[in-house]
Design a protein around this nucleic acid. Structure first.
Lengths: 109, 109
DNA sequence: TACCGGTAGTCAGTGTCGCTAGGTACGGCG
DNA sequence: CGCCGTACCTAGCGACACTGACTACCGGTA
């Protein structure tokens, strides 16, 4: 995708990652891989790690360091109560936006 | 809405304005008003004007200055061919994103 | 006349976000 | 030893929406 998607991801990627974490805890490398599987093929690794740092500092996730057999220790992130609440708020905001846009698309044909 | 929407609007607001212009030409003040009508109540005026400057510089719109009975002259924007193409690309990108997110939401319950 | 509110556009500065392009560190395999 | 895969981190960049101003024009009212 072009640079339109880059801008569109702003604010959305955060919700996407939180949604992934709401299913089950995961670590950065894993999340990146999962994003690629789900079609977000061109999301940079650095972007994900920076995002994880952010949501950790905001207190939306808990972090547990666990050793890995291959490579350095993993930082496993899991949603806490605040994170879950934030995720719900995200879905509300997303729904609002998606609804308006759907209406606009219908009207604009 | 909170600041989640601020970030989510990045890249999206541009498409929204282009979609509005695809229906019929309009000027900045009018576009702002129409946005408010459609539920985007807290979009700053300055934001819209800055956006219009941007899409004009990218050659997505034509501009005609027309006098107004009340107040300074209006700058009326209308989509050109490039703008229409860009708008279609926007809808494609949006569809992609919306689809992935819908899938995520279903899976995350 | 003087002032205010609505119309219409502009601008500098700010913060956030995703991307680029590197780097560090650990293990196993040829 | 060198290389690849795993796993994480960082500084600097560009784009974008927001804030908080400001200019300018007109009509109505005190």
């Amino acid at each position: 995708m072009g640079k339109q998607s880059t801008e569109m991801l702003k604010g959305t990627l955060e919700g996407i990652v939180l949604a992934i974490l709401s299913v089950c805890p995961a670590y950065g490398y894993e999340i990146t891989a999962r994003l690629r599987e789900q079609g977000f093929s061109d999301i940079a690794e650095g972007t994900v790690y920076a995002l994880l740092v952010r949501i950790e500092q905001r207190g939306l996730v808990e972090v547990v360091k666990t050793p890995s057999e291959k490579g350095p220790p993993r930082k496993v992130y899991s949603l806490n109560a605040e994170g879950r609440e934030y995720l719900e708020e995200f879905w509300r905001t997303w729904s609002f936006l998606a609804e308006r846009l759907e209406r606009l698309r219908e009207g604009g044909d």
